[in-house]
Simulated assay, not measured.
Amino acid sequence: MRCATCGGETSPRVSDCPTCGTPVGAPPVNPEVPVRSVRGVGLAASVAVAATTLCYLLGSLTALVGRSMAERAARTENQDTLLVAGFVELAVGIPYAIAYLTAVVLVIVWTYRVRKNLDAFPGSAPGLGAGWAIGGWLVPLVNLVVPYRVVADVTRASVWRPGTGRLVGVWWAAWLVFLVSERWAERSTAREFARLSEYPTIRREFLDYADQYSAALNRSILPMVACAVAGVTLIVVIRRVSAAQQSRIDRGRPVGPVTPGAVVPYPVTSGMSGPAPTTNPGAGGTIRA
């Protein structure tokens, strides 16, 4: 017979599906535990992560504009030309802040929902409670480990596609590299620019700004690469987990209309062996498999 969760072959000699760990004969979803749809929030979180990644990359590349403006200011010795670089940074920085905060909220909501759904999936054995799906992101130092563990548990219990588990590790490693390298680059750049003349008047002072913009761009290479890797892998993980959980939830929904007090069979997955559900027009119109 086939597993109701993943469709893999099972044997009467084993108690759990060797592919997904669901107990043999168990439904895809425990009918006594509520589940939450993750299709919409997964899509929204993916879009927010993509927007955040794009805005960060564009913000880092504004150093090219700053260098160009500084070189032009050196030729004309006009301080106002340097202001263009500041306006460009502000124009990109505001959307980045909005996208980042939106992504944080949506990723936390998504993490909580997909973790909470595991409580309704027979055979899943997450190592951390659902509360850590929220608290793990917010508690200092804890947020360096716990979110990875929660997402890894969710991915392991939801997706059986080879390589998806490793994607979670790549995502988290890239995210940690981004956090450290971005903080270092930001502080180094701020410190170097603080040493420049506040009101440049001669060519050399303007060129010092151009040199610092070039140095800032070089320092941002590692954070940019880490941000791109973390963003892409997180989107892939979100989409795969969301699709897998939503498919399982849909398979666990009852077939046909439900009357009060009815005992409802679960839909039979295509290719599964075993008797098809039948109706018993007994007293009270109860449906039985």
Rank of each mutant, 00 (worst) to 15 (best):
T5E: 13
G7V: 04
T10N: 12
S15H: 12
D16N: 14
P28R: 07
V29M: 15
V33E: 12
R36G: 04
A45D: 02
S46I: 05
V47E: 03
V49N: 02
G59S: 12
T62V: 11
T62C: 02
L64H: 02
S68I: 07
S68A: 15
S68C: 02
E71M: 12
A73G: 06
N78Q: 14
D80Y: 13
A85R: 03
A85L: 09
E89A: 13
L90C: 00
V92T: 13
I94F: 14
P95K: 07
P95E: 09
A99V: 04
Y100C: 03
T102I: 05
T102Q: 02
V105D: 03
L106T: 03
R115V: 00
N117Q: 08
D119K: 12
F121P: 00
A125L: 11
G136T: 05
N143R: 14
N143P: 07
V145G: 06
V154Q: 08
T155V: 11
A157C: 11
S158D: 06
S158W: 01
R166P: 01
R166T: 11
F178D: 10
V180E: 10
R183W: 09
I221K: 06
I221S: 03
L234P: 04
I238Y: 07
D250C: 04
V263Q: 09
P265E: 09
Y266F: 14
G271I: 04
S273Q: 12
N280R: 13
G285F: 01
